[in-house]
Design a binder for these strands. Structure first.
Lengths: 209, 209
DNA sequence: AACTGTGAATTTGTTCACAGCA
DNA sequence: TGCTGTGAACAAATTCACAGTT
């Protein structure tokens, strides 16, 4: 379930604040969801709550991390160390939440050899070998759109089975490979849409209000 | 509808490739969705297709851009020019798709005055004034989590009605303010979940296969 | 008394399948 | 004939509401 990571973040936050247990109501508020939905989600992992009390935070954290496979710490390769890729390579949020970027690649020879956060940028020709030797299973694509499909094919061929795609394009991958897409311009456009609706509603005199 | 931006991107791509019209089947493939879903989505904007032919690309682009409010070009403020904020400020994908970051803010005085992409980083104390004078309606939060709610409150108070939040936390905002969240670590954790499921399926001998 | 877990009701979203138009 | 637009069927997700446990 795609909401478990959000619950996990909220749980860690509560644990750091010194709490031992939490009710579905409180956890739902911290995660920004409805409490019934949260209970239903958690009940799918098994019954880890106590009626009248709530959920044991550290126990629930362990359960959720196990479901998400975060006890295993998977190796990640990042391809494309341009503007965004550079920031992702240096982003502390990955390491602190269980992911380790173990290799950086770029097609531009002038970038190869550069060091970012203690990692050398390697040429993309080395991708296949490195993915194998470092046992990389997750790839992050932060290249321009025209290169993204080529990189995706390389990653898949090398054995990567999950891809996080920041390039603004749809990737074609074989069955069994998971792709998640993050398109920053699309996020902005969705906000623009809401802005547009709001100003239109105002202009038309809020007849419904 | 949240899929329109994806259709728009695909349409622009087709237009650049020299196409004039496109069928729902082809456009759906380019956008990575089912063709019936695409037709239903587009039919909500009105009937802009021609039976037997398909959709006129440039006409449809104009319609979709209008629905999304992209003909208006809204001003954007970015708060937090750390690692990620820096990359976002320099990200070409915003400008090329109709958004203009017009102001950068940070709380750290050592960063104030720095220039990124021709924009001065201002101190967050100037946020309220700048948002008003520059008519900013969209705010991007790229601060650490503990600062995000404070920044969100500042933005809302200054008149911003849409927020794109990159900080790993839930924001509380009043009714009428839209928030979209992008959490990079959560994206990775969702991939980790799929990886975990796949390796579990393999280990248990793929009894279903 | 407080809170979980869950059937049932409801809403929302997706896909099918085809009538009807160019 | 090729393709859109859409009613109807289907599927999924969400929320309600409350029985049951601690």
């Amino acid at each position: 379930m795609a909401r478990l990571p959000e619950y996990l973040r909220a749980l860690h936050h509560l644990a750091e604040a010194g709490h031992d247990t939490v009710s579905s109501e409180a956890l739902a508020a911290a995660a920004g969801v409805n409490s019934a939905k949260l209970r239903k989600d958690l009940s799918h992992l098994g019954s880890y709550g106590t009626r009248g009390v709530g959920y044991d935070i550290s126990h629930l954290i362990a359960q959720v991390e196990h479901i998400l496979g975060l006890h295993l710490s998977r190796a990640v390769a990042l391809v494309g160390v341009g503007n965004l890729g550079h920031a992702l390579a240096g982003y502390g949020g990955f390491a602190s939440r269980g992911f380790k970027i173990v290799a950086l690649f770029d097609a531009d020879p002038t970038r190869v050899g550069e060091q970012i956060n203690g990692l050398d940028v390697r040429h993309i020709d080395e991708l296949a070998t490195t993915v194998t030797t470092e046992r990389i299973t997750i790839g992050v694509i932060a290249t321009p759109a025209p290169a993204a499909q080529i990189v995706a094919d390389l990653l898949v061929k090398a054995g990567v089975t999950s891809i996080l795609n920041f390039a603004p394009c749809v990737l074609n991958v074989p069955e069994g490979v998971d792709v998640r897409k993050v398109d920053l311009a699309i996020e902005m456009q969705i906000l623009s849409f809401h802005e547009h609706r709001k100003s239109a509603a105002l202009a038309s005199g809020e007849a419904a209000a």
